[in-house]
Structures are given as C-alpha cells and as structure tokens.
Nucleic acid binder design. Sequence first.
DNA 1: CGAAAATTTGACATGACTCAACTGGAGTGG
DNA 2: CCACTCCAGTTGAGTCATGTCAAATTTTCG
Lengths: 193, 193
Amino acid sequence: MEEFNLLIKNIEKHLSLNETEKEELRQFFTFKKLRKRQYFLQEGDISHYSAFVINGCMRSYYVDVNGFEHILQFAIEDWWITDMMSFTKKTEAKLNIDALEDTEMLLITREQQLKLFEKIPKLEKYFRIITENGLISYQNRLLESMSLHAPERYANFIKRYPALNKRLPQTQIAAYLGITPVFLSKIRNINNQ
Amino acid sequence: MEEFNLLIKNIEKHLSLNETEKEELRQFFTFKKLRKRQYFLQEGDISHYSAFVINGCMRSYYVDVNGFEHILQFAIEDWWITDMMSFTKKTEAKLNIDALEDTEMLLITREQQLKLFEKIPKLEKYFRIITENGLISYQNRLLESMSLHAPERYANFIKRYPALNKRLPQTQIAAYLGITPVFLSKIRNINNQ
DNA sequence: CGAAAATTTGACATGACTCAACTGGAGTGG
DNA sequence: CCACTCCAGTTGAGTCATGTCAAATTTTCG
C-alpha cells in the first residue's frame, strides 16, 4: 500500500520502526476517500476518528452564531486532522470538518489509538510530539492574531504555506486569517500596486 | 513534602501511581521560589524547565515590535507553564515568563522528563493528556478571538476563571484578551451601568 | 506621606466590516 | 458551442469596534 508508506515516513521523522511494528501498525488504520465538499465530521456529532491525509485537502472550522465560518486548520497530504476536543473526550463536536478537494486518508479511532499505545509504546511518543507541535502552532497563531495586523498575517501565511496559498480559494484563506473575504481582496490589491 | 502532593494529585486525576512510583517521581523534580516580578524565563534564553505551580501566579507573554505585551497563559496553583517551543526544541524563547505574585513551583528539565518517560512510561500518557488539553484550550481561544467581540470574550473569561478575574490587575487581563487596558476599562464601566 | 502605577474618562483616529453594485470565469443545459 | 446562471473576487461608500492620546482620579506601596 502506497498510502501507508506516507504515514510510516511521517512517524519515522520522530522515531524508528522495525518491520514487525510497521505490520502491526497497519492493522490499526482504515482507508477512506472523500469527495470534494463532503463532510468528515459535523457539529454535534462525536469525532470518532482522527485522520491522516494521504492526498487532497481538508479543513476544520467553527460556524459562529451569525453563520460565519472560522477555519482552525487546513490539512493537506502528510497532516493530521480531527476535532481534538471531541476525539479525546467523546463530547459533541463544535467543529465541522470537510473536504476542499477529493481526499484520501487513513483513519484511527480513539480506542484503537489507545490500544496502539499499549502495543507499541513508542507511538505514544509520536502522538505526544505531534500534539506538542500542534499546541505550539496554535500558540503562534494566537500570538499573531494579537500582535499583527491583517496584511502582516497574510504575508506570513503566504511565506509559511506557499502551496496552500496557490491551492485554496481566497474565501478559505480569509476564514483562516480571521478576516472577511472582501477585506482580503483589498489587502491583495494594495500589495499589487 | 506538601508541595509534592499537589503534583501527585494532579497526575492521579489521569492515572494511578503506586508508592514506589511516587518516590521515584520525586527525584525528577526540583523546588523553586520566585519573588513577585521575578523572571523565570526571558526572551532569547532557552527554556530548560517546565514548571508546575504550587502556589502563586505566573504568566507567559510575548512582547511585540511596539513593546506591547500579549499574554499567552496564566498559571496559578495546579497549572503547568513553560515556553513549549523552546522547551521541546531547545530554540531561543520568544516568550517571557515571570511571576505576578510570590510563587513556589516544581521544575523538571526536558532531559529529565524524557528519562522519566522511560522509567515510568505511564507518565508519557500524563504529559500527552495535558498537552492535548493545552492544545484544546488554545484552539478555543483562537476561535473566540475570531468569532467574538471583546465584551463577550471578557464575559467568558470572568465565567471561566472567576478566581483570576479577582486576583489579577486589569492590565494583565486586557493583555490576555488581546485588547488595550483603556478599552477593557470602558467595557467594565458599560457593564456596570 | 508621597511617588509611581493603575484605572477612568473623553475626544479623536483607524483598521476592518457591511452592503451593494459590478466583473469575470466555471459549470450546465439546450 | 452558445446562452445562462452562479459563484468568487473586486471596488467604493459608509459604519462600527477598538485603538491612541492626554488629562484627571484612584490605588498601591515603599
């Protein structure tokens, strides 16, 4: 399975696995495809799965009382995505997750994940590390949202994720940056003059 | 040691420890006191320690190019605090951490933490869980900062942390909410009419 | 008690939003 | 292949949330 190798490579950025472990690991995951626009998780449901994206693009977002969408995360190939709150605590999700492109991914349930930690303890390390990294990146975003104006946040976004910038419609980028699409359009045009 | 019991109790919210493990655990920590206003970490240094607060109050914050402080976290008794980025990756800290009150805490270095995970593997679970919870709370703050106006964010803060609201000067709360102290003062006075 | 810091208050400035009209592709059906 | 619709993006005018600055007042603390 090609798909599976991407996950292995991702794990091996942080620790090494022998062939037996790789084989065991595989049993814990299932494969799934989503069409563009298809939901992976809807607000109010329980997020049973955490997803590792093989190709395509997903997003997690919150819909506020006025119906506006605020994007927490994009996930392209080689990224994890879930509603962490709902996944770890089995509470009703406040987030929606859907596909912005046709997407293939590997899924694991929380129960399987916890079993996996018992069977191959070093994978607890792997998930601890990616959780640490996730925490760090939310900290950075929070700091940026407090200390920078929208044009600077947009500039940082382009620099940090040039691929996403080309791949995503502006509306989605605006919802990630915490501004309106109209305002993002103005920022871009001022930049171009 | 009284101090140590608070940490044990915190850990036992998530898993159970036998007496031997408690005794071993103790060896990994050191005790430290800070006076009010004293730095625990300064921007540019490496955050060698993660701190568990026994009593008192600390804050981690970023100073932007214009010299304004933006608070990422308060930590009162029973909370952990560090610059996660610097602590895990040994990079120069972008954050400052200091004491808002006289504070007592237990410290652990990253090296000791990793050794601890090997010696008592279930503590890796403990730190994974508190990291998961930290990630969730930063996600929530980011969403609130994108979807709510300052008066609503302040109302949520009071509801969520009534103790902090009484204990902290307004300037600090403003720097946490991402607004100016002047504007927070106006919010409070409109609320009181 | 006195100096320094925190908070309040008001006038004004500005970054970002709203709304509405317009433009220009990207599907879709005939 | 054209006509039509439908989004995404653009542009401009007006508005609103929050910031800036400065002066007055209160609180803190040596």
